[in-house]
Amino acid sequence: MAMQVNATRMVLLSLKKRLNIAKRGHKLLKQKQDELLRVIQKTISLLASMRKEVEEELIKALRQFFLAQAYQDKDIFEGSFLLLDTDIELSMEKEKVMNVPLPKYQKSLKGEIVSYGFAMTSPTLDVALTSLMKVFERLIEMAQLEKRITLLAKEMDKTRRRVNALEYILIPEIESTVREINMKLEEREREKNSRLMIIKDVIRG
């Protein structure tokens, strides 16, 4: 569908300029879309392998934890974790990948994860907690990757819509308008020529 514009040479020139920009933009966005797809696929495969590893580690760490828990009475076990000296802070920085602000999570641990007495608790509990802490760090990495995938996917969707809008709407519209203006200008040229020929004939009498 052509645009509602005046069929003048000025408009034609500006439309041709717009068409050029749109084609260049389309090419760039298409490249961005391909790159985003590549990054997303790479991140997804990284996440998938990480998820598999983390699930195994988590199951192992949880089993260690449950067995360590069983060494003491429930009261003693739960009592050991009261009034902990441990504070975990999660901060977020942003880094830009293809102009998409992506999160970078950073965990900081204040105090010690093992902050109970040793006389009534099993040493296996220290190992279990240390393993759980390692898994926790990897879970944060996984959360970061998942969030990145979501944001990149949103960006890719936006880019795809832009590419499609350029490819199927804006560029064909401008092209068709340019074609119409060209036709109208040619028509006008022909009209002018025939009008001049008629005037010439009249003068010649």
Partner: peptide, 16 residues
Amino acid sequence: DHNPQRLSFAVDSVMA
């Protein structure tokens, strides 16, 4: 410095 582990250690020592 308000360390709960030290509280546990101290009580455990008296217990021992």
